[in-house]
Design a protein around this nucleic acid. Structure first.
Lengths: 209, 209
DNA sequence: TAGTGTGAATGGATTCACAGCC
DNA sequence: GGCTGTGAATCCATTCACACTA
C-alpha cells in the first residue's frame, strides 16, 4: 500500500514531537485521508490499536518499519553522477530511513576513481564493475539518474547484476523482467500532471461562475 | 488521468523515431498497460483513432498536449537552491515539455542576487519578493525543494502569492487549501515503496518454492 | 465515552467482448 | 484482417455503519 510510507513519515514526525498515542482520525486528518481508510490500511496487517485509546505511536512506527522492510538497512547503489545524481548522493535523508548509498557508477571516465562529494569512503566506479560490486556489497536496490537515452541500457545492466528493485529517475520507460520491481519518478511528468489538474480546476471554477 | 503523461512521453519518443501511426496494443505494450485500457483512456477525451489503422502519432501528441495544457508554456518558479534545487534548475528537460523556470528563491542571503547556474537571466531572489514576482511574471506553478522543516512555511508563502499548483520535493506533508493543486515526490518514500514490494516479491517466491 | 476492527454497501476503475469501420 | 469505441461485467478500493472494547 502506497500510503503506508506516508503514515510512517507522519508518525516519525509525531514521535519526534513527543506524541505517545494517535487516533486514526488524527493521523488521517494530517494526511487528508479518512479515518476509516487509516484503520482499514493498518488492520490489513494485524491488530495494532486499542479501542478507546488509539495507536501507540512508537509501537506503530516499529511495526510499519518491519512491514516496509526498513527495520534493517538496505544497501543501495546509484548510477549517474550528473546534477540529479549528485543531489541524491548528497541527500542525508536516506540514512535515517534505513538506506545506505554504498556505490556510485558513471560512464564518464573523467569522474571514475574520484570521491563522491558528500559520501564517505565511496569513489565513482566504472560501469563494468557493477555486477562485482553488487554481489560483493549485497546491494539489492539501484537508482538510475542518467539521461533518457542511457536509461534502458543501465536498467539492463542493473537487472543482469542482480538487483531486486530499481528506482528510475530517467525520463523514459524501462522494460524490466517481472521479478524486478521498478518505481519511476519523472520530474517533467509530475509538472504535466499538475498543469492538467490546475487546468481542470480552472474549468470547474468557470462552470461554477 | 495519470497515465496520459506517460502516453505522451512514449508517443513523443515514437515520433522522434519516425513512427506515423500506433495501435493501442503497441502503445500499451510499451508501458505495461492493456490495449483496452489505452483505448478507454483516450476515448474519454474524444474520438482520436481510426479503426483498422490506429492512432496518428503526430495528431495524438498534439491532442494530448492540448488536454494536458502544455500546448502553451507555463512559467514556473523554484524555491530552494540546495543540491536538489540546483539539479532541477540545471535540468534541460522542462523547456521541451512546455515549462519555463523563470524565478528562483532561497532563504540563504549568501545566494541571493547571484545568477542561477544553468539558467539565463535568472538570479536568486529573496523570499519576500515572491508575491511580486509571481504576479509580474504570471507564474502559476511552484516547485518546493527545501528541507522538511521549511516546507509548510514555503507552501503557505506560495499559496499567498497566488500560484495554482505546487510540486513538493520536501519530505513532509504540506497542508494547502483545496483550490491549490499539489503533487509530492519524496525520494525516501519511493525507496520505501521499493523495499516493501521487493520484500513482498521475495515472500511470494518463497511460497512458490 | 472515545476509538478500533470489520462486514456490508457503494463507487470507480479495469477488463471483456463485440459491433462497426478502414 | 486489423483495430477502434463502447456497453456489460468484473474487480478492487473506499466509505458506511456498527458491534465491541479499554
Amino acid at each position: 500500500m502506497r500510503r503506508l510510507s506516508l503514515y510512517l513519515r507522519q508518525l516519525e514526525d509525531m514521535f519526534r514531537q513527543g506524541a505517545k498515542t494517535v487516533s486514526s482520525k488524527q493521523l488521517g486528518a494530517a494526511l487528508n485521508v479518512t479515518d476509516a481508510q487509516v484503520r482499514k490500511d493498518l488492520a490489513y496487517f494485524g491488530q495494532f490499536g486499542s479501542p478507546g485509546i488509539g495507536y501507540s505511536v512508537e509501537d506503530l512506527v516499529r511495526r510499519l518499519r518491519r512491514i516496509l522492510g526498513t527495520d534493517s538497512t538496505w544497501n543501495v547503489l546509484l548510477v549517474g553522477l550528473g546534477n540529479l545524481g549528485a543531489a541524491l548522493a548528497a541527500y542525508r535523508g536516506f540514512e535515517r530511513k534505513g538506506f545506505r548509498l554504498v556505490a556510485v557508477f558513471d560512464a564518464d571516465s573523467g569522474k571514475i576513481g574520484k570521491p563522491v562529494p558528500g559520501l564517505e569512503n565511496v569513489t565513482v566506479q566504472a560501469m563494468h564493475e557493477l555486477a562485482d560490486t553488487v554481489s560483493r556489497l549485497d546491494i539489492r536496490l539501484g537508482i538510475i539518474a542518467v539521461p533518457a537515452a542511457a536509461g534502458q541500457a543501465v536498467a539492463d545492466a542493473l537487472v543482469t547484476s542482480g538487483v531486486s528493485g530499481i528506482l528510475n529517475f530517467a525520463p523514459v520507460n524501462c522494460a524490466v523482467p517481472p521479478y524486478v520491481v521498478q518505481a519511476s519518478v519523472d520530474m517533467a511528468v509530475q509538472l504535466e500532471q499538475l498543469s492538467f489538474r490546475v487546468g481542470a480546476n480552472a474549468e470547474i471554477d468557470d462552470a461554477a461562475g
